[in-house]
Amino acid sequence: MLSNVVISLDHVSKLFYKQEQRTMKELIPALFRGGKGGNWFWALQDVSLQVKRGDTVGIVGSNGSGKSTLLKLIAGVTRPTEGKIGTSGRIAPLIELGAGFHSELTGRENAYLNGVILGMTRKEIDAKFQEIVNFADLWDFIDQPIKHYSSGMYLRLAFSVAIHTAPEILLVDEILAVGDEEFQKKCLSKIGEYLHKGGTLLFVSHDIKLVKQICTHIVHIEKGKIIRSYENPQGKKRS
């Protein structure tokens, strides 16, 4: 991998098995009926992509086109059936914010837990804790169990922890569609700040307008294949 390439996909394909039966009670009759117990399909086929450090890449496509599978492969949570994937540096997936939060624990406890899950050490979190809570604007509630949080507060904390992990690569999946408008703006400007510092962004969205606003490179996926990949000079290098 070239030194400034942070994500590289080399002819990657992903075959999915759709399991239809979740218990053996359902499986056994299905076997007798001669059913396959599910069916196979290609979620991604022969996808090659290289992302350089500092790139902002938008991935667009309709529902079920394979966008999320692509992000999962890059995040490393699932392995490709064929092809190779290489990534370098810490990846912060802003996918379904707050994965790993526990509702009975306090905001403080969850911030540490989530930070460590995203690959920080406790020491690094100590150093950034002030900043994290400042950004989330949660000083009054930080020692309360997050089950008492509103969904907005929950999101603010989750986003704040994730963005403060100082990731090499930021994976963003539609999250900007949630939260109030003010918070969205705050997130966008924080992401802008991150890009300004030379961070790499992979942005998945239906919202082609927003993608064109942010991204310098756009990849269009349909039915698991890249159908179009082009530069987008209007996408501002936020500087």
Binding site: V77, E96, A99, I117
Partner: peptide, 11 residues
């Protein structure tokens, strides 16, 4: 129980 983590983050 940790499905949400398993589908999002690798370790």
């Amino acid at each position: 129980n940790n499905a949400s983590l398993i589908t999002k983050i690798y370790f």
